[in-house]
Design a protein around this nucleic acid. Structure first.
Length: 278
DNA sequence: CGAGGTACCTGACAGC
DNA sequence: TGCTGTCAGGTACCTC
């Protein structure tokens, strides 16, 4: 079972974890793969600073998971590709790709699993996001009151890149990845190869609404899960059943019947309907 | 600013 | 069967 953690997936993870670990204390930490720790650079410092601290709350910013600890410390976790946070009984054996283990005060672990080792964990003073890769230079947060149409419009100033490329840029807007970018552009009937400065005010407004809608829908369905196994165990999202273009190449567009195509745009695999998306 | 490239990393899958 | 090559993804970093 694989998840590609974009905003709705990370939101689902955070909400699920809240019930399981909020209020618990981290007794100690085992780091089996040092490169996962992005800050502090010295592993022992990380372990020391995280140990014996209570988990005050959990939050999300873009694709980052924020775990607020006592003494104004925050752990920032970016799952990147294939990253998972699992709560398991401490007595259970580690999985092959368990890289960091937070041992809690109730005989349970919070385990960071990551097949590709791309994920990172940072421990910083709360608010000091410069040291947390993935949090610095983060753009506006969709689904918040601050993310107004005017705010989104302002982001287009002096931007001439392809819209696909901009939506993936976390400093342009936080939280979108390849799945929700393709789905939002389809919903808004905008060709992913369009230059941002050719979008009309109406199209920007449509895109704004569609981004919000597709993200809300993603959260509602518990994110997108791709099963590698017929009988995958564990909690799965359901948004994959709602995908219209992402990895649907060769299928017919539900709107016009034209074939959904897949091609590289801005260096990324991109799925769209050539008929509907102008 | 934008585009294109590389690197990171592993597993799945296609083709021979 | 077993090898080799390609692809997937997010981000950082590089050059032009």
């Amino acid at each position: 079972m694989t998840i590609l953690p974009e905003l709705p997936e990370v939101e689902t993870v955070v909400q699920g974890l809240k019930d399981l670990i909020k209020g618990r204390e981290i007794k100690t930490v085992k780091v089996r793969e040092e490169k996962i720790i992005g800050y502090p650079e010295i592993k022992d410092e990380f372990i020391h600073d995280v140990s014996n601290k209570k988990i005050i709350n959990l939050d999300r910013r873009g694709k980052c998971i924020l775990i607020n600890l006592e003494k104004k410390k925050t752990m920032v976790i970016h799952l990147r590709m294939t990253g998972k946070l699992l709560v398991k009984e401490s007595k259970l054996p580690y999985e092959k790709h368990t890289h960091v283990i937070f041992i809690l005060d109730n005989d349970m672990d919070l385990r960071f699993n990551n097949v590709r080792k791309f994920g990172r964990i940072y421990l910083v003073d709360t608010g000091d996001w410069k040291k947390a890769g993935g949090l610095k230079n983060l753009g506006p947060e969709p689904l918040t009151d601050d993310f107004t149409l005017d705010c989104f419009r302002a982001q287009f100033k002096n931007r001439r890149a392809r819209i696909k490329s901009l939506l993936l840029d976390q400093s342009f807007i936080a939280g979108l990845g390849n799945i929700y970018t393709d789905e939002a552009l389809y919903m808004a009937c905008i060709n992913p190869g369009r230059k941002a400065n050719t979008l009309s005010q109406k199209e920007i407004e449509r895109l704004y609404k569609c981004i919000c809608e597709v993200l809300r829908s993603g959260i509602k369905y518990g994110g997108t899960t791709f099963s590698d196994y017929v009988n995958a165990l564990g909690k799965e999202g359901n948004f994959q059943r709602k995908l219209v273009v992402y990895q649907q190449q060769g299928k017919k567009c539900p709107d016009c019947g034209e074939e959904i195509v897949k091609e590289k745009i801005a260096g990324r695999s991109t799925h769209y309907c050539p008929q509907c998306q102008k």
